[in-house]
Design a protein around this nucleic acid. Sequence first.
RNA 1: GGGUGGUUAGCUCAGCUGGGAGAGCAUCGGCCUUACAAGCCGAGGGUCGCAGGUUCGAUCCCUGCACCACCCACCA
Length: 912
Amino acid sequence: MSKNNHPLAHLFTTESWSSPRVLFGDYESDIYSYWLDSAYFEVDMNSSKPPFSMLIPPPNVTGNLHIGHALNTTLQDMLARYHRLRGYEVFWSVGTDHAGIATQNVVERELHKDGITRHDLGREKFVERVWEWKEEYGSSIKNQLMRMGASCDWSREWFTMDDNLSRVVRHTFVEFYKKGLIYRGEYMVNWCPRCLSAISDLETNSIEGKSLMYDIKYPLADGSGHVVISTTRPETYFADVAVAVHPDDNRYKHLVGKMVELPLVGRSIPIIADDYVDMEFGSACLKVTPSHDANDFEIGKRHNLEHLEVIDADGTLNQLAGKYAGLDRFEARKQVVAGLEEAGYLIATHDHTNAVGSCDRCSTVIEPRLSEQWFLSMKDMAAVAIDAVESGEIKLHPPTWQNLYFDWMTNIRDWCISRQLWWGHRIPAYYCHNGHTTVAMETPTSCATCGGEISHQDEDVLDTWYSSQLLPFAVLGWPEDTAMMDRFYPSSVLSTGFDIIFFWVARMIMMGYEFTGKKPFDNVYFHALVRDSNGQKMSKSKGNVVNPLELADKYGADTLRMSLAAFAVQGRDIKLDLNRVEGFYHFTNKIWNASRFVMINAQDATYTEPTISDKGVVDTADRWIIMELNTALNKFSQQIEGYNFGGAMQTAYDFFWSTYCDWYLEVVKVRLAGVDTSTEDGAKIRDEATSMTLYVLRSSLIMLHSVAPFLTEYIYQQLPNKRTQSIMLEEYPNPAISQALQDGGEGGIAEAFQSATTQMSLAMEFITMVRNIRGEYNIPAKVELSILVRCDEASQGALEQSQNLVHALANVGTMNFVATLEDAPEGSATKVSSNFEVAVNIKDYIDIPQEIARLEREKKGLLKDLSVYGKKLENKRFLESAPKEVITKDRAKVADLNEQLESVVRALSSLT
RNA sequence: GGGUGGUUAGCUCAGCUGGGAGAGCAUCGGCCUUACAAGCCGAGGGUCGCAGGUUCGAUCCCUGCACCACCCACCA
């Protein structure tokens, strides 16, 4: 394709390249569209590549991209893009979650503005309304994911309430029901009086808080005295059905079987014995209210007690509370206590710390409530799922999460899956007039039990997580035997936050085995959770929410992604440090400017693809950079594949900035300086040098592409050495070359390239040393230095060969190689590194007393180090037990230190 | 009450299976060396939370403690 009719041609203008600042705003969205139009994210079912697949944790349709999404999107996209470059057929499945309560809340809130409730509309109309809302606003999260550069396969996008996914929901429900794993019954559940629905154990948060404990007198019915009960919930006493004491409690043994009267109410209830009661706690008399407390419910079951209800679904008291009827539970508490106090029944009040449950969605205090709900039996499925992780069939990364997983799975309880909502998957249970239940995929025509007419469908919907747990196979077309299922199940890796390990991950594992007989994924990667810069959880109420899209606006999506990748190191918290984001913006600019430099230099050059061999690459610096590049590429791969995203980011950063820009490009400048490119020889030098800079640039961009996709594509498109339509179609640099460079392999080039590396390192060591001297003595860069050097022959040879570099990068005029520095002229500064000892005449710059002080400091340090190592090497047991390499290393170190010391001492004596 | 993670430079954090600790930012000094001053070249700065133990040797392993964070739990 010629440049002119390239769909992105409008981006590649001379103006855009003249800017020393990266212009991310100009190209990000166009590049994303280009990828979309080219269908690069879509699965090619005809390819023979090995599969790599992931399932996105589906964001809520109501959702806005928060920083956690941004993080996980970045990490997943890195995996996806990296694996594409590695030659995998990547399927990254994407979709959104209907998010029952959350979405219903949003629409209800809207209705509320118009002064109506969902009940005014009725079920059907209301659900219609939610669908309308979904059609209108549901795509905003999608656009936000695209903004981040997510390379998901949008052509196969799904929504958890799509017909096919809903069918899977019903299918599994029916299967479970047939197996007897789904059952219905009246149990104590967590009830949210605001959502007016049952919620699962996982959807509650226990919040520790200060409350009051009330001691209340219950008179004995026979008038022989009273007992004192302690409670934090006096407003429930109207529904008390017994008072319990411990069977071994001698204080109360004689009372068991007697009756007490409820104060002011007068109803008589028995005193019973139950060993649940803690004899140490309070008065050790427990009021038993089976309808409003989970423990009391159990006690009630054991003693066959009746259930009285005083708190209604909406959290207000009912007729049973007499004059308190209609009051909200918390208001009622105050008034009931006041009433009891007035009548003399309240004996004492004390402070008490306890934990109350609150609704995960709306923070309303949970009411334990007795109601009829659907449950899914978990124990057996959990056992299989525990096994899968224990045996290593499914790997958790980092593995520390295993303990938590095992712990929860071992103590798993049945899952309350019904919700009293309208928005969601309606439970496929139908009732006839005789009260029989028929569970079926589609509305049955008659009752399965009695053949009678079906009167109605169950009103409840399923917990949102019920459908999410089926996604790994549901999105691939299960229960049909599809090609997608065949190719991409189980998926390769699931990346998610550890906060949903129980909600989602554990359940997917159980469902996978239950329905497909296979694990749903090979690996699970848990990333840390993003906190603000003080380590606090981000929340709207705290006002500390960082909006990732604002950061993307300010610095570009690539910068944001690189920052997030860098933050993703092992650990549980990520503190979002905006200074670091700023740092990565600098890096984005660095990539931009280095590319500009390379391309400007390459403008008139002819590119030749270098052959990585002895003959193909002859220049020392070229061989060295090839080695460095190879090391970085390998390290980056290992780190990505080990889910060490922060490390990978660091690797790419260090290579590109510190090695490629700071050294290699500077060396190339030296090579190109003063070359007359109008001559054939000059042009050849230029072509060779620029070809290598371009080659390394292209490789670096490929490495960086997974984390900074937009910028790397933008630059790639304009590279003279681009090989394909898109950087996305490139391949990660060749493993065979990598092997050859490492161990000789094919062609045996390792040795030659290794010696180039040694030579470069020596030159770099020397240049750095000279720069140190300049820095310390404030010798301007313009002042050319002549230097006395003492070193071994090999180092001398290396240095002589790199003379032009030393001259250009350290401004060294002459180097005189000498056997000893003892004859160095007075007023010389000396410096020692592991391979060189140098003396520089600095008498115009030196401040003698300051220099003496500096040398004394250095001497002190050296003596200290020497004594540490000396002691070590005198220690017989060290010599006996330490590995040889360590001893050799330490001996060399001592020799080195001694040399340095000698030199410092000599310098000192020459000054004093 | 049980459990998990953390404590390393002024700040945010790296540090792989034990061999005298690194980066970015910040600070200080010097450079407009025409890719980048959002840059380049240097410098200073650490009892690796505290106390024991194992070891020739501990930031790393073990024990205890302190503080921070999070998770789980049916003491009213």
